[in-house]
Design a protein around this nucleic acid. Structure first.
Length: 556
RNA sequence: GCCCCCGUAGCUCAGUGGAUAGAGCACAGGAUUCCUAAUCCUGGAGUCGUAGGUUCGAUUCCUACCGGGGGCACCA
């Protein structure tokens, strides 16, 4: 784990030593800016290492270890920060930080409380995070679930780093898909009434359509049996399905700030307006009765139809209009989360906004790969049109929101995710979400014990904290100090899985410490020092779990 | 055919232009008079898909190929 604050201090010291070496004629300035201070891979190689000597030696054709020895001499006097400095391997200089420096972080972190890990890095930049965006044609599938959790976690991370975040759900309740939905519902309605019916060829076959039809019968009997248009069926289906989607999102505690209706773009003439604007730039032409967007003029492989010969726009056109609105609404950064099956929509939309004079670099797509569900040793195939897909609701029934969120975030978006239902359901040590939550619960238990026994932390005097000298204790301090930089990098990279890995690592360190050392023991001073450690650790777990939307139970 | 993602331990996956590539699961053995054993400790396990290239140094960057997934609509 990177220890950002301390690392920054060390970096300054190394920079000063480098400059001093230049002044004293030990080496030239050639290596300036091209050396690194980083964390070595293996324990026993210090807290941090620098390759400065190797870089200098490379520039000046000298022996790396010889340069390293000179650097060590310069670093050695900084005893306030460094406990030990040594040459290692091909010419690395390994640095061991003073324990007191690590110990001093404890009251600092604890003092920040729930703010520890937060930053103002985003400087209030307006960020739009668009995710889920499922049209109301059926319940959310497991794939949507991954996206919902991913998008929400990204939003949380961005908020934590000082961005002004809007969570947005873009949907369309008009058009062909919805017509088919209405037709499907009517067919089931007629079927349930025992009347002749014809089910649309590409209709929605899920059982939920029957339930909607059943509800219509319960409300209106057979009053709709001679209604030719699909509107009343579509309306009812949309109502029920949207309520269902929102119910599911509520179970995951995901709330959107805004629902943006694609249809409003038509109502306000914004779709037409995009065509006009593109036409003005000579990027639109007619062919075969359709309207084409000349994307080849913008460096893409082929031109695309934006209005079909039937007069209906393709998805690209309103998407471009929608994104132009995002820009017009003044967002500095637009994050679009969607599944890899929609990957093809990206280049055309970006080309569109660029043609309209906006900077496509402000749009960052986060494309997640598919989820495969493993149940009873078998993969469950998913398809929205078929009846046999697993919904997020069913998943939540089985594993609960904490496990669902944690598991969906255990892989980076780029990787396909195998969701092991058996593992997520298991209430045992192999289940990572329990492992991490248990660490928090255990720390709460220690706190309760301390209260029962009347042991109080007292003041965080350096002399008291100096008792924390065990390897496991210093490792925990280092890991905690790395948290803010981790949150920042996870947020800027839009990669919440880093938080999950961090928490698992921190939990492993804590459980290891717990099994080797007692917090509340015979030595009152040591107990108080360790209570400081435990309480601060609990805070980091709570903050970390909160960032990914997983609960931090006080007991389990 | 073209484009995107992935290929790392038996399985699921992290990670990195540099020093001995990691974790969890699975497997084998061990730990509890004591703060929650939902825990911990020990052990084996790898040509980092293959072949070239760039580099002082590549598992990491580039190219080609192989394998898996997704896309290449006047569907979204």
């Amino acid at each position: 784990m990177v220890s950002f604050m301390i690392k920054a201090r060390l970096r300054e010291v190394v920079d000063r030593c480098f400059a001093q070496g230049v002044q004293e004629g030990l080496w030239s300035e050639a290596a300036a800016g091209s050396y690194a201070v980083e964390e070595p891979k293996h324990t026993g190689q210090g807290d941090f290492a620098t390759n400065l000597a190797m870089v200098v030696a490379g520039k000046e054709k000298r022996k790396p270890r010889e340069v390293a020895a000179q650097l060590v001499a310069l670093l050695d006097i900084h005893t306030d920060l460094l406990a030990r400095v040594e040459v290692a391997g091909p010419g690395f200089v390994n640095c061991v930080i003073q324990p007191a420096v690590w110990q001093s972080l404890l009251p600092e972190i604890h003092g920040q409380g729930t703010n520890f890990g937060l930053s103002k890095r985003g400087a209030g930049a307006k960020v739009l995070v668009e995710f889920v965006s499922a049209n109301p044609t059926g319940p959310l599938s497991v794939g949507h679930g991954r996206q919902a959790v991913l998008g929400d976690a990204i939003a949380r991370l961005l908020i934590a780093t000082g961005h002004a975040v809007t969570r947005e759900y873009y949907y369309n309740d008009a058009g062909r898909q919805m017509r088919v939905l209405g037709e499907s519902t009517r067919a089931r309605y007629l079927e349930l009434l025992g009347l002749p019916f014809s089910f649309p060829e590409d209709g929605y076959q899920g059982e939920y359509i029957r339930e909607i039809a059943q509800a219509l019968i319960a409300e209106q009997g057979d009053a709709l049996k001679d209604v030719a248009e699909t509107a009343p069926f579509t309306k009812k289906a949309e109502e029920v399905i949207f309520a269902d989607i929102n119910h599911t999102l509520n179970r995951l505690e995901i709330k959107f700030d805004n629902y943006y209706n694609e249809y409003s773009l038509y109502e306000n003439g914004l779709v037409e307006d995009v065509i006009a604007a593109l036409r003005e730039k000579g990027l639109v032409y007619e062919q075969d009765g359709a309207v084409w967007f000349k994307t080849t003029a913008l460096g893409l492989e082929q031109d695309r139809v934006i209005v079909k010969s039937s007069g209906e726009p393709t998805y690209r056109l309103p998407d471009i209009a929608y994104h132009r609105e995002k820009f017009r609404r003044g967002f500095d950064w637009m994050v679009n989360v969607f599944g890899s099956d929609h990957i093809a929509t990206v280049p055309d939309v970006l080309a569109g906004v660029q043609a309209l004079g906006y900077d496509p670099a402000k749009v960052t797509p986060v494309i997640h790969q598919f989820v495969t569900l493993v149940r009873d040793g078998q993969q469950v195939k998913m398809s929205t049109r078929k009846a046999n897909f697993v919904t997020v609701d069913e998943l939540l029934d089985e594993v609960g929101p904490d496990a669902a969120r944690f598991f969906f975030l255990m892989r980076k978006a780029d990787s396909q995710l195998e969701f092991d239902l058996a593992l997520a359901t298991r209430q045992s040590q192999d289940n990572p979400v329990f492992y991490v939550q248990y660490a928090h619960a255990r720390l709460c238990s220690i706190r309760r014990q301390a209260a029962d026994k009347g042991v109080e932390r007292g003041a965080a005097d350096p002399a008291l904290l100096a008792r924390l000298v065990e390897e496991e204790e210093l490792a925990l301090l280092k890991a905690m100090s790395a948290f803010p930089a981790l949150v920042e990098s996870a947020a800027l990279a839009l990669e919440p899985h880093r938080i999950v890995f961090y928490l698992q690592d921190l939990a492993a360190r804590f459980h290891g410490f717990y099994n080797r050392h007692r917090v509340i023991g015979d030595d009152p001073e040591l107990s108080r020092a360790r209570l400081w450690l435990a309480e601060t650790l609990r805070l980091v777990f709570a903050n970390g779990l909160n960032l990914i939307g997983v609960s931090a139970p006080e007991s389990m």
